[in-house]
């Protein structure tokens, strides 16, 4: 389960920045086109944060929708699955949202 390694990275990065201070909450941004399942991430978060300065902290997940921009007709297309296809038939799409996998911020103190 890659969510374990992903969540471990979140906890490591937050611990490093917190420098011993207690972390109350962490906010992450997860795109719909990444292979990360928010529920799995929550499950891992409680396990991984145990015994660290993040223990008991809240995990806020901002989910971002999959959105593509068609390079052929210029339209914005919602990408619900991973098939990159515009209504005009073009498969030449730039993904403008949905691939985020970021740590946004955290609350310490």
């Amino acid at each position: 389960m890659h969510e374990f390694a992903i969540t471990q990275s979140v906890v490591d990065a937050a611990c490093e920045r917190a420098a011993g201070r207690r972390v109350r909450s962490v906010r992450v941004r997860v795109g719909a086109l990444t292979a990360v399942v928010p529920e799995a991430m929550r499950f891992c978060f409680d396990l991984v944060s145990e015994g660290t300065s993040l223990e008991g902290a809240r995990l806020d997940i901002d989910q971002r929708p999959g959105i593509g921009l068609c390079r052929t007709c210029g339209r914005t297309v919602s990408l619900d699955d991973h098939v990159l296809l515009c209504h005009c038939g073009s498969a030449d799409l730039a993904v403008v949202s949905g691939r985020e996998l970021e740590i946004v911020s955290m609350e310490v103190g």
């Binding site: 996998l101 970021e102 740590i103 946004v104 103190g109």
Partner: peptide, 17 residues
């Protein structure tokens, strides 16, 4: 209860990898 402080990170989760 102490005040909390919000720290902006804005970094990729897999930045280290």
């Amino acid at each position: 209860g102490p005040l909390t402080e919000t720290i902006t990170l804005e970094q990729r989760i897999l930045a280290k990898n």
